[in-house]
Design a protein around this nucleic acid. Sequence first.
DNA 1: ATGTCCACCTGCTGGC
DNA 2: TGCCAGCAGGTGGACA
Length: 271
Amino acid sequence: MPELPEVETVRRGIARVLEGKRIVRVTVHRRDLRWPIPADFEARLTGATVTAVSRRAKYALIHIDRHDVALVHLGMSGRIRLDPESPETHDHVEFVVDDGHRLVFNDARRFGSLDITQEANLMHHPLLRRLGPEPLGNDFNGPVLEEMLKGRRSSIKAALLDQQVVAGLGNIYVCEALFLARIHPSRIAGDIKSKSVHALAQAIRDVLARAIEVGGSTLRDYVQVDGELGYFQHEWRVYGREGEACRICSGGISRIVQSNRSTFLCATCQK
DNA sequence: ATGTCCACCTGCTGGC
DNA sequence: TGCCAGCAGGTGGACA
C-alpha cells in the first residue's frame, strides 16, 4: 500500500499522537513479520518518551529519549490504526501512550517490518544504508538523477523502482512520474537525454508533493493515521487505468508487464 | 559490478 | 455456492 507519500502521511499521523508522549505499553502479538521483531523491542520502548517521528524513504522512524530509534516499514499491506474500536485479524503490535491513545500495527501479508536500533547507528542500519537520495530533499535534482542513471542498461521503470537510485518510489508513482515526464517506461535508463531526465526529476518531485498534499488532507479529520490510499488515487493519470482514456490525448491507456509487475502508460504521450 | 527473478504472505475479484 | 487463477502499493537475496 504505501509508497513515500503514504508513509509520509502515516508519519505525520504518528507524530501527532506520539511526539512528547511516554510509551506505557508495547504488546507484540506476532513477531514473524518480514524479519522477526527483536526480542528486546518492547523493553527498549516501554517507558521511553518519543522525541520525534521522522521518515527515510518508506521507513517511519520513531525517535525516543534513549538514543534508540524504532523503524517501521509497512510492506505492501501494512496499516496503522489509531484507537481502533475493535481488534482485527492481523493486528500484530500495539503501542499505548500515557494519554491513553493506542496505535495498532496491522499487516495481513506480513511483508512489513519493525526494528529498533541505536540512533548513532541509524543511517548504517542494513535496511537504510544503501538507500539513494530523498526525492523531496535538497540532494535530489535533475543532474543527480542523471548521474544515478548513467550507464544503466535496465529499463527506466526498473531503475526508478530501485531504492538505491532514488528512495521512496513504488509502482504507482513511477508510472505517474514517467507519464508526467512523457517517457516510455521501457526506455533504457542510461540512454535517456539529459533534458528528459531533468524533466523526470521534476515530475517525481511534483507527483510526490501533490500526493502528500492530498493525502494529508484526509488526516485533518483525525480518522486515519492509517496509510490507506489517500484521495490522490482520484488523480491517477495512468496507474490502474488500463483501457481508459488518456487525460491528455484521449488515447487508450495500456498495461504492460515489466519485471513481473504491471506498468501503465499512454503509448501516444510517452516516447 | 549489474540486471533479472523469486520468494515471502494473505485477501480479493472475476470467470467458470 | 465453490473453486481456481491471477492480481495487489515492497524488496532482500539468489542467481546469471
